[in-house]
Design a protein around this nucleic acid. Structure first.
Length: 565
RNA sequence: GCGUUCGUAGCUCAGCUGGAUAGAGCACUCGCCUUCUAAGCGAGCGGUCUCAGGUUCGAAUCCUGACGGACGUACCA
């Protein structure tokens, strides 16, 4: 249900009827319940433009707003606000329609857009740490969201599997043989040991350097070892993805090395277009208005990540056919993407109509507000964080009666992992954020547990009721009115969140929805004796809609629900 | 130095396509379980929206400047 859009149509009609040849600004949700459900604030600006009295214009417009359908009442307030009240019977009918629709009345994009979402992108030389959390879950949420709205999503995991440190790791893998394979289960440790060997033993260091060259020239033995290493490392990532309920699979992996063959061609094509310029021995693209050039080939002939990104961009645009490409990457790389996108467009590697977006997110800070250091042993491994989350969730499960040990474990997993993901998804992605165990693993307030709890409460009612729910909704009070309108807003919230690539808009919505539901639950009895059959059925149907909205919303965020808590 | 970005309650954060008395959670105080799951609900406390100008009928939101933090600033990714 595109609620706001429908109201905007009515306003537009009123404009036409009033003979005003302007495009009205969109209505917004009322700031206070006393001001109705929606408000139109465009009269003041319009008055200015037409040189008229704002209240008079508001009066004129309000007089032309069609009543009886969606809107039941209008009111002029303040300097010229037009407050709008929605028609309860119309709301009820709309909710009933949503009830009968498997997609809650949310339409699918009729012209699906092919979208590439690039996210996670772990480095194969290292274990995933908390710094990878945001890209992984924001990206997955964005992909889920676009998929739900009907777009054709292509997930891309641009893993870092190429570079000088691999020579060292592979040399060490070979040296340790099968024993080394076993040690790979702790990548961090493996890396440290390899580094220690590299620093201590000159012969080993030379061998490592040789290996880099050999891999790059296609030596089969070295490539086999390299492949073995990558497989193992990727296995670690998949373990994390599994725990996180992130949908990335091997199919989505397009590693850096995948683009190797195209790199010389990228340089050649740039050269052919006269975009390259040598500077201090390196091949550069100098962009207008940019002081610092984009270096695409080192003085020694090696390629850089800008080169790989250009190759990846044109692969995605031309081979995959994407019309929107989203890079869910740390905000610190903003300058890099700005430049690479510009090169991709000026070189026509990527057609003009393809939207390139850097879905940036903030830097992680420690508790004192300083940047989270990853070098000084301050790294928190992602796998450890997730395990800790599950342990904490398990400790907090109070009512263990009636639940088997397996059920408790399962519940702890869902609550704990949900808490971690929700904590991250619910803050504005662009701002920096504080990494704090207590905050992240908290189960109070605006957390996933709040939504899961509401969901479980509703399921509990359904179990008690046991019958078939018929959607025959009647809005019996102010609270039910607001709850229903909130339910109908879901589609537009999702659309806006997709457009802005902002998961926190979804969490904010869910929190408001559930907040309303909790009050409704406390105040409006459902299965009590003195509740009429009609009212009972109506409230059951509203509860069912709330439950399904929570479930769908959390599913997009990659968080599960449970029937019992 | 230059650039990007942020600065909202004691803490963590929403709100930022300009709109009516700036919202939550945590913490603190006080109510509510013989009644559908109290991991909940209600009430209270708490703010010169960093500061100074400007635009506007109207600014937390837009513009300029200052201060403070974070990040980036050519051969790492």
């Amino acid at each position: 249900m595109k609620l706001k859009e429908q109201i905007n149509h009515l306003i537009q009609d009123a404009f036409v009827k009033a003979g005003i040849d302007e495009k009205p600004i969109s209505v917004t949700e009322a700031t206070q319940p006393q001001f109705g459900d929606y408000q139109f604030n465009g009269a003041m600006a319009l008055a200015k433009k037409l040189g008229m009295n704002p209240r008079q214009i508001a009066q004129e417009l309000a007089g032309h707003i069609e009543l009886g359908g969606i809107i039941t009442k209008t009111q002029i307030a303040g300097p010229g606000f037009i407050n709008l009240w929605l028609n309860p019977s119309w709301i009820a009918t709309a909710c009933e329609a949503a009830f009968h629709d498997t997609r809650l009345g949310i339409s699918k994009n009729e012209n699906p857009l092919k979208v590439v979402v690039d996210y996670s992108g772990p480095n194969m030389a290292k274990q995933m740490h908390v710094g990878h959390l945001r890209s992984t879950i924001i990206g997955d949420t964005l992909a889920n969201l676009l998929e739900f709205l009907g777009d054709e999503v292509i997930r891309q995991n641009h893993i870092g599997d190429w570079g000088t440190q691999f020579g060292m790791l592979i040399a060490y893998l070979e040296e340790t043989g099968n024993e080394g394979s076993a040690q790979l289960c702790d990548l961090e440790q493996f890396y440290k040991e390899a580094k220690a060997r590299f620093d201590a033993d000159e012969a080993f260091a030379n061998k490592a350097r040789e290996y880099v060259v050999k891999i790059q020239s296609g030596d089969q033995h070295c490539l086999n070892l390299w492949q073995k290493f990558i497989d193992s490392s990727l296995g670690h990532c998949e373990e994390v993805y599994g725990k996180l309920c992130v949908k990335l699979t091997r199919e989505d992996v397009k590693a850096e090395s995948f683009y190797n063959e195209d790199l010389p061609q990228v340089i050649e094509d740039l050269l052919a277009q006269g975009l390259l310029k040598e500077s201090d021995g390196a091949q550069c693209v100098f962009l207008e208005g940019e002081e610092i050039p984009v270096i695409v080939q080192k003085g020694g002939g090696g390629y850089l990540y800008a080169t790989t990104d250009l190759a990846a961009l044109r692969y995605r645009a031309n081979v995959l056919g994407a019309k929107r490409i989203c890079y869910v990457v740390d905000a610190r790389q903003g300058e890099h993407f700005k430049q690479v996108f510009q090169v991709a467009k000026t070189s026509h590697f990527v057609p003009e109509d393809v939207k390139l977006e850097h879905v940036a997110f903030g830097t992680m800070m420690d508790r004192s507000g300083k940047p989270f250091k990853t070098r000084d042993g301050g790294t928190v491994k992602l796998i450890d964080l997730l395990e800790e989350a599950v342990v904490r969730a398990k400790e907090s499960i109070k009512n263990k009666e009636g639940m088997s040990l397996e059920e408790i474990d399962e519940l702890a997993k869902i609550i704990g992992i949900g808490a971690v993901k929700y904590a991250d998804l619910s803050i504005n992605r662009e701002s920096n954020y504080i990494f704090d165990w207590d905050k992240m693993l908290s189960l109070e307030g605006n957390t996933s547990l709040y939504m899961q709890y509401a969901y479980a409460r509703i399921q509990s009612i359904f179990r008690r009721f046991g019958g078939e729910i018929e959607a025959n909704i009647q809005i019996s009070d102010e609270l039910e009115h607001r709850l229903s309108v909130m339910l109908l807003r879901f589609e537009e919230v999702l659309l806006k969140a997709a457009q802005d690539a902002a998961p926190n808009q979804i969490t904010t919505y869910l929190y408001e929805l559930v907040g309303l539901f909790m009050r409704f639950y406390e105040q409006n009895p459902i299965l009590k004796e003195d509740v009429s059959k009609e009212l009972q059925m109506s409230r059951l149907a509203l509860s069912a809609l709330v439950a399904r909205t929570i479930k769908e919303g959390l599913e997009i965020l990659g968080i599960e629900v449970v029937n019992k808590i």
